[in-house]
Design a protein around this nucleic acid. Sequence first.
DNA 1: AGAACTTGCAACATTGCTGTTGCATCTTGT
DNA 2: ACAAGATGCAACAGCAATGTTGCAAGTTCT
Lengths: 182, 182
Amino acid sequence: MRSDTERTVGTILQAAERVLSRNPAASMEQIAEAAGVARTTVHRRFASRDTLVDAMTAWATRRFAEAVESSYTTTAPPLVTLHQVTANVLRIKIDWGYAMNRTTSADPEVARVHAEVRDRCDEMFRRARDSGLLRASADLTWVRRVYYALIHEAATAPDEGLDADALATRLVDTLLHGFGER
Amino acid sequence: MRSDTERTVGTILQAAERVLSRNPAASMEQIAEAAGVARTTVHRRFASRDTLVDAMTAWATRRFAEAVESSYTTTAPPLVTLHQVTANVLRIKIDWGYAMNRTTSADPEVARVHAEVRDRCDEMFRRARDSGLLRASADLTWVRRVYYALIHEAATAPDEGLDADALATRLVDTLLHGFGER
DNA sequence: AGAACTTGCAACATTGCTGTTGCATCTTGT
DNA sequence: ACAAGATGCAACAGCAATGTTGCAAGTTCT
């Protein structure tokens, strides 16, 4: 029973992500339909629409943080870490792109975790700069913003059969060297 | 009379952009309030909500195309053209960021113009590559997607007092060289 | 001043979404 | 088989936004 219930919850969250990423104003009816359940069932799991969206956001945010923490390391060379973190985040971002963009939430925990990840990201780039991977003149705030934008773009791909690793390789190369002739 | 009417329309479109960029689900009431007019007045100008949003989209799209066409040239060096186009587009994007992201519209004209601009952009990067500004191995589709993403990011700035020219300089430098040590 | 036009305001109907409940049905665990 | 729980379905109330209309008041042009 319990496992069934949880499976239903997961199915609904996935459906919500899928539907809302295409149309943020989609109704509960459309989400329920995409999940293959009745609208009342959705309401039994999530008291309100906000509750559902918040749950989806919290779920994706947790996965996001896990993806970063599990692959971040200060022992490997910065370039390796950057690549691993990027690939790992992309794996989550591809499936939870909409939810991951919702940095604001009724749940303050979500904002806290996002800030935490942001700090980790800043730390990663600071180390990259100190080690000479990035130029000393690089504005780290701008670097992070560009990095987030590239992740968004890479994950929102109408792309050929590139897997997360290939996407990460291209993304990191773009971030480090751009497109200009060297 | 006529000029008053047009001024009202412009005020409403600006208010719509301002309000909807913060909250895409904002009501006509909120838009009217931001424009300093009664909700009924908005409805007299725009038959429906969709009509208003479409008008806003069409307006911004036109400005977007004008910004590109007025600064694009095949005579100046590609780097100069790239910078001018970028700065010009940013000037529009800063004020019409929400509307410019709406590439889909009931008006097929909007989609056409967007495709037109996209083609012009591709041409610009093709010339840049042929001239040696970009690497020969650069994937021009990816270049354009990154370029659009950077423009979005640069215009959505919680940024210091950088004007469009400074933003363009930083953006083009990022696009061409990234952040890596050379 | 008078005509033409625009606006604000209040009121109203309509619509679509949300959230709730009761009940029959089906599944799952024991 | 039996009990407990989950689901689908239909129905309902409530609500907020949309879109419409009539009218009085204000503005602009002649």
